[in-house]
Write a protein that binds this DNA or RNA. Sequence first.
DNA 1: TGATCGATATGTCTTAGTTAAATGACAACC
DNA 2: GGTTGTCATTTAACTAAGACATATCGATCA
Lengths: 251, 251
Amino acid sequence: MKNNVASAVRQYPCERCPLQSFPHFQRHEKDEVEFLSEFKMGELVADIGTTVLGEGASSAHLFTVLSGWAFRYKTLEDGRRQILNYVLPGDLIGLQGSVMKEMQHSVEALSPMVLCVFQRDRLPNLFRNFPSIAYDITWLASREEQMLDEILLSVGRRSALERAAYLFAFIFQRAKSVGMVKNDKLMVPLRQQHVADTLGLSIVHTNKTLKKLATKGALRWLDRGCEVLDNQILLDISKWQGLPSTPRPYV
Amino acid sequence: MKNNVASAVRQYPCERCPLQSFPHFQRHEKDEVEFLSEFKMGELVADIGTTVLGEGASSAHLFTVLSGWAFRYKTLEDGRRQILNYVLPGDLIGLQGSVMKEMQHSVEALSPMVLCVFQRDRLPNLFRNFPSIAYDITWLASREEQMLDEILLSVGRRSALERAAYLFAFIFQRAKSVGMVKNDKLMVPLRQQHVADTLGLSIVHTNKTLKKLATKGALRWLDRGCEVLDNQILLDISKWQGLPSTPRPYV
DNA sequence: TGATCGATATGTCTTAGTTAAATGACAACC
DNA sequence: GGTTGTCATTTAACTAAGACATATCGATCA
């Protein structure tokens, strides 16, 4: 996909890019809006299952997510896969490919997605001219690190049941923070294989573990995905307080 | 420790701060050097076992490591601990506490350390005035994320033996890149408890696993710590190619 | 109406890893 | 010289998770 991004992009500035929800835009710094709309290439639609960014790729683009779900993952040579984190609206992807030489992980769409596309070679220029956006990008990178810390703690030290409960509580909270939760319930578009590869378990054991969670009324498994029914049960099982709210500070 | 940093800091600008090895300094941009020496508070010595930064703390400081080892970790309420990553000379710590509200992990010294101390509330100012340093900081954050991705893959999907081999190969490579490796051998100041908490294993099983690695001639256990003897054996066992070199690009 | 396929479910057996408890080695300290 | 404390090591009993085989279930399509 990396080669046909340019042609697939719809060439108009998108009005609702996540970067525009950042603090400096709320302060109506108009020149930054103008710069951003120059920096921005347009929108891109990715279908379910698409590899938005591939490991080893030296993509010329940086993306923000307007809508849809994706996941970041890495694999070992023999095919064992580890899902690293999930990507939700408002997230930035491809920063590593922009700032380092190339991507060391892949990103795959879990649902149809709409992405905002940026040219990565303008990133240094963006840093030079718009330090508040640079600060926001650092905030995003720092938050990603914080999430990875949590996930690593979970995979390393929680039991299978705690891990599964933590995963869905974690996703629930993230989805809630971007307004994807209605009536305190949430559809998560995952296969059990995804869950297994996130938790570091076999698919069989994952199935048994999910069944336990379902028995307790925390969630229920559907056609293609699972529905979180009671987040409090998940929090109790995982012994997790939830992520602290970390409002992005003004620069 | 967070309260006595200010008094413990030796109040002179340090000449060999890691930030000064960054690209913009190599281009001799003198005003940046001047700004940095104003931004810098001085040096701090931390003894072995010291908690440099504590979870939940809202430290007023940001550190770069001049010398010594440390590790980042998180714990669950019941005491289970997960070591997230190791901190080596050249690394930046406390960014999360600067950019988010507070630290979500702790950092503890594994050996006597010398740190460079910065005031975190000047960070936005630094971003505004010195975008190339901002870019370097983003580079560091991105590299940390890349390392966490690798570690998560390892803990989630590698066997105990592969994980242990990976850990020491990983540390070896990082240490080599900052010139800490002599004669292709390296002393790593870890207890087996640290190794266990890094790999997500019990200390008993860690002991057995390390014994296997020792039998294969990859490493040997000493008084307080372990010596990496043959990195190639570790790489073979862990099926790891090593981190790609990712030179920090000029802005 | 089957036929086929991918995903989920479940039972049995095996194994990798845990827990607990005892022991040894070594250094620090009166 | 004896006491204490911290790590490392080893054993044995136990259990969580994996492997494999097989069954079910629901789409889709001829």
